[in-house]
Computed example of a mutant assay.
Amino acid sequence: MFRRREPVPFAFIAEADNFRSNVTPPPRERASAGQIAGRWLMGLTLVAGLAGSLILGMPALSQDPSPAHTQHSEASDGR
């Protein structure tokens, strides 16, 4: 019913490491001036957004040692 399978020779995998192609890939296209400017603008926008959120968020993150306005309840006035 079940037969033993013959071992498969994997010599072609070992030979694949030694194989070198004589075909060179085509050179990469250089980015145009518009693409470079767009990348710089996108990076500048991200940095400005992070800096702006940090500057606007700093007052919320700071701890105020003496609160300017304290709340008093009417129950503590002794009425």
Rank of each mutant, 00 (worst) to 15 (best):
L50S: 07
A48L: 15
R39S: 09
R28V: 13
I55M: 07
L50F: 13
P59G: 07
T70L: 08
Q35C: 01
S76Y: 01
P26T: 09
A16H: 05
A14W: 08
Q71D: 12
P25T: 04
L56P: 00
E15D: 15
H69Q: 11
N18G: 15
P9Y: 11
P27W: 03
A37G: 01
G52H: 01
P59E: 02
H69L: 15
G57A: 13
R39H: 07
L46F: 13
M42S: 13
I36D: 03
R4L: 12
S73H: 01
T45G: 11
S62Q: 11
Q35W: 08
H69F: 14
V47F: 09
R5W: 07
P25R: 11
P7Q: 07
R28Q: 09
N18L: 15
P67A: 14
T45V: 14
S32C: 04
F12T: 06
P7H: 06
R30H: 10
L54A: 14
S73W: 01
S76K: 05
L44R: 03
S62F: 10
P27E: 04
I36T: 08
L56Y: 08
A33R: 09
R30M: 13
D17T: 12
S73N: 05
S32T: 15
S32V: 02
S62C: 13
A60L: 11
M58L: 15
R5S: 11
M42A: 15
A75N: 04
Q63S: 09
H72G: 00
P7W: 02
F10W: 05
P7E: 10
L61S: 08
A75I: 04
G43R: 05
R20I: 10
A37W: 08
A31C: 06
A51M: 04
R79T: 11
E29F: 03
N18C: 02
R20E: 12
A75W: 08
L61I: 06
R28E: 13
I55P: 00
L41C: 06
A33Y: 02
L44E: 04
A31E: 10
I36C: 02
S62P: 00
D64Q: 10
R3W: 09
N22V: 05
G38S: 12
E29G: 08
G78N: 05
A33E: 06
P7V: 03
L56R: 02
G52N: 02
P25V: 03
F2C: 02
V23M: 04
T70R: 08
V23T: 10
V23I: 14
R20W: 06
P65L: 00
A33V: 14
P9K: 09
R30D: 12
D17F: 15
P26M: 11
S32P: 02
G49M: 10
R4E: 05
A68R: 12
M42V: 12
R20N: 04
R39V: 14
G49Q: 01
G43F: 09
L46A: 12
P9S: 15
R30E: 15
N18K: 15
N18V: 12
F2Q: 08
S66D: 14
P9A: 14
P59L: 03
A48Y: 05
F12Q: 06
V8S: 04
P59S: 07
I55E: 03
L50W: 04
A60P: 00
E6T: 10
